[in-house]
Design a protein around this nucleic acid. Structure first.
Length: 294
DNA sequence: GCCACTGTTAGCAT
DNA sequence: CATGCTAACAGTGG
């Protein structure tokens, strides 16, 4: 489940535990996890110090000496965990990174085996397509660029929010929560969004993701941070996984439909179809145009 | 037991 | 090109 807030929480909880430490060796327990690596594989990491841990979209990046980086995608059930060398590991552990100080090791655990790891040399953003194809970070993007990202698109807004090349880091849970907060129906096509809609969507995106990070992410099932602690934002979900329960705003039952191949929860009364404020209907492109004028 | 469903997205068909 | 399904995997719940 790790979406942007969960990966951000993982990165923040992992960084103090491994930054500055020297890697002794990495044990790859499930070979297909490693999608790409320099010749010789993960052995190149031996003796390298961890310099930094950061997030891009839903990916976690561990930057090491020698221009080497580990890029993790956790997909549905991946976890990055700090664990003492003696701590029991289960059959779902796919990678173990040991440090020469003999302290806590980094483990990648993944039940469904969808997750992947890249070991790249050089600036990760230019060294791997998985990162370079990502759209802007939702917490960094300006309202003008957000409108620009949607302009010219004809797909349903929910699908676009989930499209990592449009905007990076949003997944099924937060897409639904963001759409509810901005009172936009998930099947609304981008061209039907008014300027006002796009403005609210931008604001809700920032608001929901920031609140979720504050709460350390949402734990539905597998997600925990590097210390094994669950998040708390699931307690604040207003529509996700609440089919049939009353809308927290108007009391009408939360609906569930299929959009972009995913379960999508929304309130049919609060989230009207085809964009909200028809009177002021303006395509997302208007954001681009009005932004250029200023 | 069988079937539907799950937080993602690459790959393929339209 | 953009868009929209489906499969990849393992587990859970009806």
């Amino acid at each position: 489940m790790p979406e942007l807030p969960e990966v951000e929480t993982i990165v923040r909880s992992l960084a103090p535990g491994i930054c500055g430490r020297v890697i002794e060796r990495a044990e790859l327990l499930f070979k297909p996890l490693l999608r790409r690596a320099p010749r010789g594989g993960l052995a190149v990491l031996a003796g390298k110090r961890v310099l930094n841990v950061r997030r891009r979209g839903k990916m976690a990046i561990v930057e090491c000496e020698g221009g080497l980086s580990l890029v993790f995608h956790l997909k549905m059930t991946g976890q990055l965990l700090l664990a003492g060398r003696g701590e029991a590991r289960d059959i779902h552990t796919r990678l173990v990174v040991k440090f020469s100080d003999g302290g806590a090791e980094l483990r990648f655990r993944d039940i469904r085996k969808f997750g992947f790891l890249l070991c790249v040399k050089g600036a990760p953003e230019s060294a791997c397509a998985e990162l370079s194809c990502l759209g802007p970070e939702p917490l960094d993007i300006t309202i003008e660029d957000f409108g620009r990202a949607l302009s010219g698109r004809k797909a349903r807004i929910k699908g676009l929010l989930l499209d990592q090349s449009v905007i990076a880091g949003i997944g099924n849970i937060y897409a639904d929560e963001i759409l509810f907060d901005s009172r936009i129906h998930p099947v609304t096509r981008a061209p039907a969004l008014s300027k006002n809609d796009v403005g609210r969507l931008w604001e809700s995106t920032r608001k929901i993701l920031a609140l979720a990070i504050d709460a350390k992410g949402s734990t539905l099932r597998d997600y925990v941070d590097a210390e094994g602690k669950p998040g708390g934002f699931q307690l604040f979900h207003k529509v996700y996984d609440r089919e049939g329960e009353p809308c927290v705003t108007c009391g009408s039952p939360v609906k569930r439909i299929r959009v972009a191949g995913r379960s999508s929860y929304f309130c049919a009364r609060c989230q009207r179809r085809g964009g909200r404020d028809k009177a002021a209907k303006t395509s997302p492109a208007a954001w681009t145009n009005s932004a250029k004028k200023r």
